[in-house]
Design a protein around this nucleic acid. Structure first.
Length: 512
RNA sequence: GACUCGGUAGCUCAGCAGGUAGAGCACAUCCCUUUUAAGGAUGGGGUCCUGAGUUCGAUCCUCAGCCGAGUCACCA
């Protein structure tokens, strides 16, 4: 009669059979005086990547190794068995032989501990030597193993053969909600986040070499500003005041330029209480930088240089395949003014148009407008709708209408425009930059125009930041600033379809 | 927010004119001293997303809800 002894303790707790069995194995280990969660350091002197890199060529190496990782597979063949160990670098096969694990009469470590009590997902340490099996696979001949952590939940087992993947753990919801499982089981996911980290590291190095100071500014702000967006609102009890989670870093970073730094930058989370999509997560990472005594032309050059360098560093080439597009980041990129690019894609010269003519044009082009949209916003709509999606290669679009850029400096020669540029790539904006407005009188006027837009109903109109005006009344040197969406850029670099693929824990509805 | 698709075992999925479910992997028992997604045999495992309705009977049909994915709309 078939019979499994399941401990009563676990019967009524809604554990699945596999969870019950693992909990029982845990108890049996304890009963055998084996600590399933030992605290000592486990000394390691090899990793899977190194072994695979050097071993078959020089088989005198790795004859006395100690390695640790997660058990990902077990193939028991009687008194000789194979398993797979996964560490942070990759995987390697382990060979277990009963009489070597247990040289004496007592075969417990092999027959019971290895064969029965060790499960896929457990973390173990192994000591032994590396050899090549008859099948030609580099393998660790294990002479001794140690349980470092018992796993109580079964892991999805992804298998591969001839480049085909079986039983892949692919359900996006589960991958995002249980990112730890995704990371264990899908090596590609770990690579994406290493690349993301490398993007940030390379940008940071570049900016430090440029002489900029990395700074941190408040996330909790009494007045949000620096962008057109809806904020998250929160409350500080002791101060009895409403605070907002920042939507941009801009106004604080410019205060630091007022304070006398020549260049500052910040990698920061910004928060926008708006829709979510594969391009939008409520919290996202932005790098903003401000450099004194420079203008937006200088920034265009520096940004091109920085991105080209980062792409080469990560990719060994300036060419990146992303989605259906092949993008070449090689300098110099094409540069157009906004009016030029609109003329190019719509055939319309809008440079002399007033608001009502623009509304008429938008209608003609099938671009929706709202009552509260000002001239700048309508132009932006036309651009976003009719031009942006066509711009695949990195392209600098410059000289924006003044109405949609309340923090940018008036253009030195073109009336009605500001010295602002964006870089569009793969149909999406990846950065936004200007010659910063440092005329406090003009700045106050611009804020007031925003108030007017707010009165007309624009939910994203900016509010006046009196302290910021005060700061620039003390005098801010001519400055150029730039914001780079790190998530969006990481999507391009890692060929990810969704922003959720480049954020470890994307925002999800609470799990029910 | 609108539309489309989906939610069945730990994982990947099948199923059904409406008669309370299947496969592979994983798991368990036994056999097996170099196997390669995958040795052999046997076996256990499911509130078929939730709730209501239709029905003798619903995993399946209807309605509502929850969650997710994709497309579109807005912000980066």
């Amino acid at each position: 009669m078939f019979y499994i002894c399941i401990n009563f303790k676990y019967m009524n707790q809604n554990f699945s059979e596999q969870e019950q069995i693992r909990r029982q194995a845990l108890e049996e280990l304890i009963a055998l005086n084996i600590d399933p969660y030992p605290s000592d350091t486990y000394e390691i002197n090899a990793n899977t990547e190194e072994i695979h890199k050097h071993f078959p060529q020089d088989n005198t190496l790795y004859q006395d190794i100690s390695i640790a990782g997660r058990l990902m597979n077990k193939r028991i063949m009687g008194s000789a068995s194979f398993a797979e160990l996964q560490d942070s670098k990759g995987r390697i096969q382990l060979y277990f032989n009963r009489d070597e694990i247990c040289p004496g009469e007592d075969k417990l470590m092999y027959n019971t501990v290895f064969k029965k009590l060790l499960d896929i997902g457990d973390i173990i340490g192994a000591k032994g030597f590396v050899f090549t099996t008859r099948m030609g696979e580099t393998t660790i001949h294990v002479k001794e193993f140690t349980i470092l952590c018992k796993s109580l939940r079964p892991l999805p087992i992804v298998k591969k053969k001839d480049g085909k993947t079986y039983d892949a753990f692919t359900d996006p919801e589960q991958r995002y909600r249980q990112r730890y499982v995704d990371l264990i089981v899908n090596p590609h996911t770990r690579e994406i986040f290493k690349k993301r980290a490398a993007v940030i590291r390379n940008i940071r190095n570049f900016l430090e070499e440029l002489g900029c100071l990395e700074v941190e500014t408040p996330v909790l702000q009494p007045i949000y500003g620096g962008a057109a967006a809806k904020p998250f609102k929160t409350y500080h009890n002791k101060l009895d005041t409403t605070l907002y989670l920042r939507i941009a870093n801009e106004l604080y970073l410019k205060r630091l330029i007022v304070g006398g730094y020549d260049g500052v930058f910040e990698f920061g989370k910004d928060f926008r209480n708006e829709g979510m999509s594969r391009f939008h997560n409520p919290e996202f990472t932005q790098m903003e930088m401000y450099v004194a005594y420079k203008d937006y032309y200088w920034m265009m050059d520096i940004f091109e240089e920085m991105i080209e360098k980062v792409v080469i560093e990560l990719n060994d080439s300036t060419i990146i395949k992303t989605g259906d597009n092949t993008i070449d980041f090689k300098r110099p990129w094409k540069r157009f003014t906004m009016y030029e690019v609109i003329k190019h894609f719509t055939g319309e010269d809008i440079s002399e148009m007033n608001e009502s003519e623009l509304i008429k044009l938008a209608k003609k082009l099938g671009v929706e407008t709202d009552r509260y949209m000002g001239k700048g916003k309508i132009i932006d709509e036309i651009f976003s709708d009719k031009c942006e999606p066509h711009l695949v290669q990195p392209t600098i679009i410059m000289d924006y209408p003044i109405e949609m850029s309340p923090l940018a400096k008036k253009h030195r020669s073109k009336t009605g425009l500001v010295e602002r540029f964006e870089v569009i790539c793969s149909g999406k904006e990846i950065c936004n930059a200007f010659s910063e407005l440092n005329d406090p009188v003009d700045q106050r006027k611009r804020f007031e125009e925003q108030l007017e837009l707010g009165r007309r109903g624009d939910p994203e109109a900016m509010v006046i930041d009196e302290d910021f005006i005060k700061a620039i009344e003390f005098g801010m040197p001519p400055t150029t600033g730039l914001g780079l969406g790190i998530d969006r850029f990481a999507m391009i670099i890692t060929d990810s379809k969704s922003i959720q693929d480049v954020i470890f824990f994307p925002q999800m509805r609470p799990d029910k």
